[in-house]
Amino acid sequence: MSATVYALPSIVVFVTAAVLIVVGALGVLAVRNPVHAALSLILTLFGVAVAFIAQSADFLAAVQVIVYAGAIVVIFLFVIMFLGVGRSRHDHVEPLVGQRPLAALGVAVTVGGLIALLASSHWVTGATSASGSSLVKGTGNVRQLGTAVFTTYLYAFEATAALLVIAVIGAVVLARRERVTEEAE
């Protein structure tokens, strides 16, 4: 397998996506200002969208940009500005002794275990899909995904409709000012 020469464009696309994703994720971690963290998050989300397109998941890449970068990050920015949260003052204090080294150790063990699992396993068996809805090359990705969502996963799709309504009502109830209880206190 190592003797196979991979096409240069796909390598360039992968490296671009990897740089976008890793730089953005490290930015979310390192930056102190929440607004800058949200902007770094957009970088990571665009990198993931690039990786989606490189793996012929066109519809998901579009949804990634529209829903994640468009809607979710805007909600984050809206809440940050609504609350007026400035630089976080709490990150230099460390109430739990040894939390950072332990977290780093746990994450290193997890990622190392995942990569070791990858290296020792042979995922590509050549077997076709078990669900019968195989991803045929050449036909439109949107059509295949739409067919799968509206036939095989129809009940899950209907359940997401209920979930979204519940989420909207819950957010409105949570963010509403409760004047009655404040007067009662």
Partner: peptide, 30 residues
């Protein structure tokens, strides 16, 4: 894995994960 195993079910799962993530962010930020 959807690309590797040529199974569109992986992409459908991502679709539902995105919906749940949107709902989770809405309620969480509330």
């Amino acid at each position: 894995f959807a690309r590797t195993l040529s199974d569109v079910g992986g992409q459908a799962s991502v679709f539902f994960v995105m919906v749940v993530a949107a709902a989770e962010v809405t309620v969480g930020l509330g």
